[in-house]
Design a protein around this nucleic acid. Structure first.
Ligand SMILES: NC(=O)c1ccc[n+]([C@@H]2O[C@H](COP(=O)([O-])OP(=O)(O)OC[C@H]3O[C@@H](n4cnc5c(N)ncnc54)[C@H](O)[C@@H]3O)[C@@H](O)[C@H]2O)c1
Ligand SMILES: NC(=O)c1ccc[n+]([C@@H]2O[C@H](COP(=O)([O-])OP(=O)(O)OC[C@H]3O[C@@H](n4cnc5c(N)ncnc54)[C@H](O)[C@@H]3O)[C@@H](O)[C@H]2O)c1
Lengths: 214, 214
DNA sequence: GCCAGGTTGTGAATTTTTTCACAAACTTAC
DNA sequence: GTAAGTTTGTGAAAAAATTCACAACCTGGC
């Protein structure tokens, strides 16, 4: 199987968005979609859509656009979602962790939570959304034992680096971090941060009347 | 007061990260920080740090670096966080909405939730984290009446566009959207999306062995 | 006052990402 | 079969973002 070319980071994100949009279009009964339509729905340019897809092959038909069913098979393949479930560990079953755990959308997209950890003895043993919360002490061993590949960190900032270390020790190769700290991890581990305060602050920047740009 | 220059979108995000990091450094007793240190902590380059800051003025001292207390006053000013609280409406008090509502971090960063809406009669009237959940029917009027500037959408995807419309009608000028749909809003409204499935899928892309790049 | 060491701010160069623009390809209608 | 109308895929151009690299500057020691 061919090695994929270098696509911009933002391009990978857009592939996911195309996939989401394709499902919606299919639900509406459409069978083909043009780059222009897709672009309009996602506020991009049609050239961008075509370029993103062209990194991976030629999937369109001149004069018709892209066959939705075809793209819906191809994009998951590109994203590494085809015919598999990624095994995920969630660390921290507090407010945010519980919301993530209850969310059914992840499974539909190919991610299944195989372990939930907390260090609070009052939470350990509880069953949340069908998952038993486990003692964080054995995190690394459990993660390794269950062949978990992705970790989600939803613990307070002070604990996040230590949790990250344990996840890495357990062998995960990717981490989604919700704690507002910058984590250090070895280069073979892909880190991704979601910081909601940062998102709001960015809105603030654009709101504040001084920055009337855009 | 001078109009700010055009800084890359990612640069705005980094300003928030600098601010976060500065608080940490201050907590450790530091009083100056160099661009190289800041860069190391956030896995950026020192040139990038200097460039980002230089868009807004000259805040450093050759040979010493940046005075932490000074930067901690200046960055909030740039981000529009100085001496004010942004008034926020949260729509949807389900799993995710409740987690957001309970989060104390937003207030510390200058965002205060002034209204919470839900359309489920069983949820309306409940008090979550000190906030009474209100009937979503009057959303636009309430938002306008309380002079709310930012909306957070935490409702199911199918309801998100309608909620967006109402928020806009109520006069918000920025929206943080958690629903996995692409929203349409007038150009004066700044939209920002957080799609956690997209984040996971991006991790999947980098994990999947076909993409050994990076 | 001078020197050694360290760091900024920023033009210029480079790299990355996006957009333009059009030949080639396909579709539909007649 | 042909013509009119679409839309792709992609070189080439443009724009945007990042990095290089260094003069200028500041500090602290002596
Ligand atoms: N709740 C939100 O909406 C929100 C918003 C933005 C950011 N965040 C961030 O997400 C993270 C979690 O937030 P939350 O609101 O769920 O906090 P929370 O306090 O409700 O939950 C944190 C959970 O982590 C557990 N924990 C602490 N240390 C641990 C460890 N070493 N190992 C395992 N578990 C441990 C705690 O027992 C608790 O159950 C925090 O870093 C927070 O800053 C949350
Ligand atoms: N929970 C998560 O971890 C998670 C993760 C990723 C994405 N999301 C997205 O975030 C959104 C919320 O997720 P959730 O898990 O909290 O869902 P949820 O079903 O727990 O909560 C949704 C809430 O919105 C309310 N609601 C529905 N229509 C409404 C309307 N028109 N006006 C006002 N309120 C309305 C419902 O009554 C409910 O209380 C969804 O779009 C979901 O896809 C959630």
């Amino acid at each position: 199987m061919p090695r994929h070319p270098r696509i911009p980071d933002a391009g990978v994100t857009r592939l996911s968005l195309y996939l989401r949009e394709l499902s919606r279009l299919e639900g509406e009964g459409a069978s083909f979609v043009s780059s222009a339509e897709l672009a309009r729905a996602l506020t991009l340019t049609s050239a961008q859509v075509r370029r993103d897809l062209s990194y991976f092959g030629q999937f369109g038909t001149s004069g018709r656009g892209y066959e939705i069913r075809r793209l819906k098979r191809i994009i998951p393949r590109i994203l590494g979602l085809e015919g598999r479930m990624w095994r995920v560990a969630l660390v921290g079953s507090g407010n945010l962790g519980s919301a993530l755990l209850a969310y059914r959308g992840f499974r539909e997209r190919g991610f299944v939570i195989k372990a939930v950890f907390d260090k609070d003895p009052r939470k350990v043993g509880r069953v949340v959304a069908g998952q038993r919360v486990e003692e964080a002490g054995w995190l690394a061993d459990v993660v390794r034992g269950r062949r978990i590949q992705i970790g989600i960190i939803a613990v307070p900032a002070v604990a996040a680096q230590e949790v990250c270390r344990r996840l890495v020790r357990g062998g995960v190769r990717a981490i989604l971090n919700f704690a507002p700290v910058s984590l250090a991890a070895p280069p073979h581990v892909k880190l991704r941060n979601v910081d909601l305060s940062v998102e709001l602050e960015s809105l603030s920047y654009y709101l504040s009347s001084l920055n009337a740009n855009r």
